[in-house]
Amino acid sequence: MTVIFPSAFAPANAIRSDAPVMVLDRAEPDREGELRRLRETVRRLERSGGASSAPAIPLDVPEIDAALPDGGLAGGALHEIVPGNVAHDGAALGFAATILGRFAQVRRGQILWIHRDAGALTAPPYAPALAAFVDPARMILASSRRVEDALWTMEEGLRCGALAAVVGEIDKVELAATRRLQLAAEKSGVPALLLRALDKKSAAISAAVTRWRVTSAPSRAHLGADGESLQDIAGPRWRLDLLRNRFGDPARTDIPSWLVEWTNEKGHLAVVSETVGRPHGAPAQRLAG
């Protein structure tokens, strides 16, 4: 069997896709099926680091769950949330609390919330508002001034399999640190959330399994309102961009994006129907890895 890469012989315009094409000199009927099986095995091998025991946790939003591998957020894995707003991260915090609420529903145990106290302009999450998403009675709040301490706390928490989830609000996280967190999460099966600051430099690379950008969006307008007067406020709407989806569909080249609305009364998240499939303002770019 000889494997020939077309780029070696053919002119550049002859390449039909980015992926190397396998040219097989002795064609066999079941090659395609075997390849599919192999790919599946590789994917499973890649993902299993003890995490195989932790099932994926669905967000209960069918449109979003469909885009996630195994129909939900991986259990023993690190997930990142980046705020899309410059002014504040209220929306990102809301989405984090929503995910946390799902984790807390599925998994038993306490939630460890780590807040890095970066000075006067930062504040820990406010429990009375979080109560709508997740019961603060199940939360242990740890705060630290130093980034190393915050990361240590997060890793220590992830090693403890008895926790329902670990959340870290840490602004400066290096790639190595995210790798450590991911490994610790894989080992114990505890899901980890990392709320990062809006910082393009440090947020560029990470070992997290998914990364979400959460931007606040104008809420639903009430009927009959004129354009002049101030209107009543409805449930918050967020624009979710799934910037990174490590084990997602490799064929998908655009960034999945949804406009979602949180309804406090029903206590759940739903995709706003009219925007399904509509591409987000940013030009679609190919997903890496």
């Binding site: 529903q105 599925v106 038993r108 199940r138 706390t153 220590e156 008895a162 926790l163």
Partner: peptide
């Protein structure tokens, strides 16, 4: 307190060990 409603696929570990683990974690932190 820890028991969650609808915790269908929660791992069925004994509460004793679980709680003790968290207490020890809190001590370390």
């Amino acid at each position: 307190v820890l028991l969650a409603p609808g915790g269908g696929d929660a791992p069925a570990a004994p509460a004793r060990g679980h709680d003790a683990e968290v207490v020890q974690l809190v001590d370390r932190l």
